[in-house]
């Protein structure tokens, strides 16, 4: 059976070049089936088998619409997470799966409540910068730019243990979280292109074997250049 990857709401959930993640995965996995679900459509995962679900960052208003659209499928999403389906939620997409987002003025947005995660949002303060750290045995190098600070609760494992950069809150030097194969991360943009070794791990989860990436030599060269750049003490975090 071929691998099935669903991209949720790409027309509104790709603010920072995030669509390139799926474009790249298509080139890495030419035999896989890719399903794109628009905001007004019924998600493919609701009635079908999927191996991976991807969603990228969105505006704050779009978050409200996405929560509304996904609410009827809350139990199905929980079932898929329990089963080990890969979820990759980048930028503020993963906040939708958490408990709530609280704005500085006290406004509370109730989210899907699937993961024990809360976010605090301040629209007058955007914080951005680079993130360097480790996930299992590999180094992750990527970027964040966001209005929220994120607070993972019990049962969530940090995604990246950071060595340099701007963390997702003021208390922990970590970035994002995992739960089974759910990856929730504020890292945004072409994360899979910037991090070829992470992409290899993800693909191994999907295929059960090591695979050569598209443009592997060039992607790894760019990755090595970035890792060296990030490690340079003269390179600031934002």
């Amino acid at each position: 059976m071929s691998i099935v990857i669903e991209e949720l709401f790409p027309e509104v959930c790709s603010l920072f070049g995030d669509g390139a993640n799926m474009k790249y995965l298509r080139q890495c996995l030419p035999e896989a089936r890719f399903e794109q679900t628009a905001l007004n459509d019924r998600p493919f995962f609701a009635d079908n088998h999927v191996d991976m679900i991807y969603m990228g960052p969105m505006t704050e208003n779009t978050q409200l619409q996405v929560i509304k659209r996904l609410k009827p499928f809350r139990d199905r999403i929980e079932e898929l997470i329990q089963k080990g389906t890969v979820f990759l939620m980048t930028g503020n997409a993963h906040e939708v799966f958490g408990k709530r987002i609280t704005d500085k003025d006290g406004t509370v947005t109730e989210c899907l409540g699937i993961n024990d995660f809360t976010a605090k949002r301040d629209m007058m303060n955007r914080f951005s910068g680079l993130v360097l750290g480790n996930y299992e045995d590999i180094e992750i190098a990527a970027f964040r730019a966001q209005f929220t600070k994120g607070y993972p609760g019990e049962g969530l494992v940090p995604f990246v243990k950071m060595t340099k950069g701007v963390p997702m809150n003021d208390d922990e030097f970590t970035e994002g979280y995992t739960r089974n194969s759910f990856y929730g991360t504020y890292l945004l943009g072409p994360l899979l292109i910037l991090n070829p070794y992470f992409t290899k791990k993800l693909i191994k989860k999907l295929c059960g074997q090591d695979r050569k990436l598209a443009f592997e030599e060039e992607v790894i060269k760019a990755y090595n250049t970035r890792i060296a750049d990030f490690k340079d003490k003269k390179v600031g975090i934002h």
Partner: peptide, 12 residues
């Protein structure tokens, strides 16, 4: 001059 440029924009 200050940091490493976020190149996400080139993918848009």
């Amino acid at each position: 001059k200050r940091t490493s440029e976020n190149i996400a924009w080139i993918y848009e």
